[in-house]
Nucleic acid binder design. Structure first.
Lengths: 160, 160
DNA sequence: TTTCTTTTTGCAATGAGTTGCAAATACTTG
DNA sequence: CAAGTATTTGCAACTCATTGCAAAAAGAAA
């Protein structure tokens, strides 16, 4: 696990100040589950520091994202955040029906990425990428398929 | 060019009413340039029909998107819309720097699409897809590259 | 054409997220 | 450890987009 001190160092190195608000938001995200909603982060942070302001949470998460500490995931049109694990970077597939977020290895986007760069000189933002759709579990199944469904697929929604 | 009457028929066929507001928004989008911002649509529509309400424009564009008349493009976190040309469907690459939107043939996403379906049973929403990034013109160039740049790439930003 | 039902509109209120600004505070330097 | 300054916070106002609801209007039926 990435040490908390190391995370703080990232902020310090880039010249950002270590305010109580930032320390708390960082801890909340580091200890929270994957892709937490902003409101969740806010409530947790507020219970540790009652003066916490929602605008500060937004600004702090934006800063953390900018320096790469956290990853932003748009789930059902709301922003969610999770700690960035440098050794387990992944994209997300977000289900439009159940709002579940499933991990997707960067490997699946490598080819797409090179194509855009080579053919159009367009450099896509693929640090993190979220694709919406419908997951196996929520997918309407044809009659013959019923009961055969989900077991053949691996959708990693588990903790990192 | 797709006839205006045909577009109206699409609405009628699905049981939607033809209100003056809808006719005007449709004409504005049909005659406007590619990917218009909602505010642009609103202003144009309002000048043709002064009682036009912004909420109506939003609702109307959402409806049009739902029935496939228009395509939604998120440009720099604002929603834009353009008339759907059934014979020229395309995705968009949106430049984070200049906010330009460039067309991308669906062909480039076919493989990615099948991979998600086959490996994860996840059905991605790929009717229309927008990828952010930096276009050739805004891309920082290494010294040797200067002056060699953009001519080798085709970025289609033109009218459809 | 008139009446009826259902959809749609306009308006005002709401929600997520951002921003301007004065007051507060983290870090720097002496 | 005191003073200075540049960043950050809290608050309120604001933006884009959505929604609840009563009044208006479209289309169907008589």
């Amino acid at each position: 696990m990435t040490s908390y001190e190391q995370l703080l160092q990232v902020l310090r190195d880039e010249g950002h100040r270590l305010t109580p608000q930032r320390l708390i938001v960082l801890r909340v995200v580091a200890e929270g589950r994957q892709h937490m909603g902003v409101d969740e982060v806010f409530r947790e942070a507020q219970s540790a520091y009652p003066f916490m302001d929602l605008a500060t949470v937004y600004r702090t998460l934006r800063l953390f994202k900018q320096v790469g500490l956290v990853t932003e995931v748009a789930i059902g049109d709301r922003l969610h955040y999770e700690l960035t694990h440098p050794d387990d970077r992944h994209h997300h597939m977000v289900c439009r029906v159940c709002h579940g977020a499933f991990n997707l290895s960067p490997h699946y986007l490598e080819e797409f990425n090179s194509t855009l760069v080579n053919e159009f000189g367009f450099i896509p933002d693929l640090d993190h990428f979220t694709i919406a759709g419908v997951c196996v579990n929520c997918r309407p199944q044809s009659p013959e398929e019923v009961g055969v469904g989900s077991e053949e697929f691996t959708l990693d929604e588990g903790a990192t």
